[in-house]
């Protein structure tokens, strides 16, 4: 994972990798603006890191976002480990600017204005997918990357990502695999 992250960030001119460590105690607070945690959950970081501006966690567990809020980080982000290079870079930059950032599936439960689970509208079930979202989900099940999906549907990659975000929200999924699994189980994908 560490080697993969290094490769993903190596070309970025405005992001410099200050260090790669295995243990929280090895973090150089003076050199670190944004801490990216890929294999250690933030719940295991027991010491204060006052010198670090923000933290970005790669995890599929939405509970880790609760840990981040409770720990009092001024800027934080949470993304699934299978995030794209663009998402990773955008998140690091956003956290570096003092923002909170994350995928809807990982943060929605943590937000105070999240809809009440007893809301009758919620009990009617998930919001139906649009026909375009169905087409994107179908191609997700075939393992196509965003670029291939965009080519097949005659839309931009940016639009594919927009539809993916909507799919994750509607299916309450935090990854492509989870979206496909839930889509199959809900009878939304044709085989």
């Amino acid at each position: 994972m560490r080697a993969g992250l290094r490769e993903m960030l190596s070309d970025q001119q405005d992001i410099r990798i200050a260090g790669v460590v295995r243990e929280a105690q090895d973090i150089d607070e003076g050199e670190t603006d944004v801490l990216v945690m890929a294999s250690v959950p933030p719940s295991q970081v027991n010491r204060r890191l006052d010198g670090v501006y923000g933290i970005l966690v790669l995890t599929d567990d939405p509970e880790e976002s609760r840990v981040l809020i409770q720990a009092g980080w001024r800027a934080w982000g949470i993304l699934p480990p299978a995030c794209s290079v663009d998402e990773l870079i955008a998140a690091i930059q956003a956290v570096g600017e003092g923002l909170w950032v994350g995928t809807p599936a990982l943060v929605r439960g943590m937000l105070p204005f999240e809809r009440n689970m007893n809301n009758p509208a919620e009990e009617m079930g998930p919001e139906p997918l649009t026909s375009r979202e169905q087409e994107v989900l179908q191609r997700l099940a075939e393992g196509l990357a965003n670029k291939q999906i965009a080519l097949q549907l005659g839309i931009s990659e940016h639009t594919v990502k927009f539809h993916l975000s909507s799919l994750y929200l509607k299916l309450n999924a935090s990854s492509r695999t989870e979206a496909v699994r839930k889509g199959l189980n809900a009878g939304l994908i044709s085989l």
């Binding site: 299978a82 997700l140 099940a141 075939e142 393992g143 990854s175 492509r176 695999t177 979206a179 496909v180």
Partner: peptide, 8 residues
């Protein structure tokens, strides 16, 4: 196995 991309 279903891969991280969604395919099989």
């Amino acid at each position: 196995v279903r891969t991280g991309r969604g395919g099989m």
